[in-house]
Design a binder for these strands. Structure first.
Lengths: 124, 124
DNA sequence: TGACAGCTTGTACAAATGTACGATATTATA
DNA sequence: TATAATATCGTACATTTGTACAAGCTGTCA
């Protein structure tokens, strides 16, 4: 089994990667259209980010007509895990509880979410 | 009221900032000693990071003997809020639920934590 | 089949990041 | 009051990031 060490994903790249996952597969155009209004970046920039993600091994592409269609090359789980852990380490020394508390305090989750959480946490 | 726009905190800086908060106030030395074993970086590097954090406005310092004692200049709440929101936007499009679910699935929180969450979420 | 529209590629570049060396200043101490 | 030990400060530098232009392909449609 090939144990490849994936390079880190930069913040800007992370967003692009997420959009590709969300679209399942996407051309540069499609990613551009999916960008949140707040964060409008140039077509060329999106292109470069996609290129870099491919070079790093997070995306692959095949060709449809003249366009490149990008799609994930590693499970998003893996990337998310890494990102969350890094984030947690840096900001909270690895302890997830303060993060959960923060989210709860700021009203980002409701009772239903918590039920779901309870179910998941209990099951484990 | 002076509404100053704080520059972003880089990942490496974030970790240093957290350590200062944790120690309440600290010299370069003390921050170095507090570094997790996994992440041993040079004294000089820690110094630079502290300096940059001060220049950006996140830290101040006073002098004790020949050493600089750094301490926070803005509420950690504020920094955490920004960091979490950025992170959430990039990786989950701003939706905190998948993050909570991820944390729960990976057994990072237990029943007590969830009770606490419920209390907090309910109160809001 | 030729021109156009739409894409990719190569290249560029400033700013931010991560890391560190050497020189200078300061404290404590012998 | 020299001196050794310890800090800071200025500076440097390779990478990575964020952003973009210009040139060259490639289908497509008149």
């Amino acid at each position: 089994m090939t144990k490849r060490k994936l390079p880190a994903v930069s913040p800007a790249e992370t967003e692009i990667l997420r959009l590709v996952w969300q679209l399942d597969k996407a051309t540069v155009q499609e990613v551009c259209n999916k960008l949140p209004a707040k964060r409008k970046i140039a077509y060329a920039t999106v292109q470069t980010l996609l290129r870099r993600l491919e070079k790093k091994g997070y995306l692959k592409h095949h060709t449809r007509g003249k366009a490149h269609v990008f799609f994930g090359a590693v499970k998003s789980e893996k990337v998310i895990k890494r990102s969350v852990n890094d984030f947690l380490d840096r900001l909270f020394g690895g302890d997830p509880v303060p993060l959960m508390l923060y989210l709860a305090e700021h009203g980002k989750i409701d009772a239903d979410d918590i039920e779901e959480l309870k179910r998941l946490a209990g099951k484990k």
